[in-house]
Design a binder for these strands. Structure first.
Lengths: 154, 154
DNA sequence: TATTGTTATACTCTATAACTATA
DNA sequence: TATAGTTATAGAGTATAACAATA
């Protein structure tokens, strides 16, 4: 029985919880993340590997520690992400001549190509999940999220 | 050396990534979640145990499966959460006379008291992280998050 | 047969400590 | 001595399969 019977109890909702912006953010982000994961699946990318690839393509030659800071990921967690992207031939670790401890990360042609196609798919995904909002509402939402992050990280 | 030296390279930013609402949501939520965890720490609650407690206090007598659906948590994951709240004497599992498979969840006096104090702390936390936004902007943000969740869950 | 709560399990994401090789 | 990358490890959060008791 999955149909609502006449006189069946209403599903539980909660005005207290739904009044918290933090809870709304969690639930909305979870829904977005689920749809995004489906979107990236054909490219064998997850949100984190996609994000890392985008940053490397946009900032060729950056060091791993730069990438970790840009993504707010601890360095140990970034290692497996870079490993995966390098194993798939999407980026390369290049020894830096000026500092032999560090690696410069550069995208390959294959990495740039996959990044372009995945980015187009993600844009389509965003158009879909934001289809209920006007362009102005999307701008205000983006500004609000940036403001919240800035305030909460202080 | 943590100070910015004159001529030091700028920290990496990325306009492509920062243009994705999904990425902004992830980063903003992560910052909010970190601050919320600190807020709930004195009550020995996490976001999930706090949410569960609020729903039980607001809907005394609901079944575990109702709570799972309300929180969008799979039933197996809810067991340990209910275990923890019950072990701490904040809620109780009551056998339902009408269906001996199910438990009705009811808050204790201690649970209601802790819920009230934790809710006040969370409200203060929200006021803090939302201090950069007007009341109207907060309403619009909440509406946008609800709309996104609705669209993405379709 | 289907459902409630449960157990066991596994996978992802994230965080910390400690190691190595360089600086 | 400090830093870049690495290894090992541990903790959350979340998902599925399968079970016992009950409907």
């Amino acid at each position: 029985m999955t149909e609502t019977a006449p006189g069946a109890p209403d599903p539980v909702t909660d005005d207290t919880l739904d009044g918290f912006v933090g809870y709304l953010m969690k639930r909305a982000f979870a829904a977005v993340q689920t749809d995004l994961a489906r979107t990236l699946e054909p490219f064998e990318l997850r949100m984190m590997t996609f994000s890392a690839l985008v940053v490397v393509v946009d900032n060729p030659g950056l060091r791993q520690s730069d990438l970790a800071q840009a993504l707010s990921v601890e360095r140990p967690n970034l290692v497996v992400i870079v490993d995966e992207l390098e194993r798939r031939g999407l980026i390369r670790r290049q020894q830096m001549p000026t500092d032999r401890r560090a690696y410069a990360l550069v995208p390959t042609d294959a990495g740039r190509g996959l990044c372009r196609r995945a980015t187009a798919a993600v844009k389509a995904h965003e158009d879909r999940i934001l289809s209920g909002l006007s362009a102005n509402q999307i701008d205000q939402l983006s500004d609000a999220l940036r403001a919240i992050r800035r305030t909460a990280e202080e």
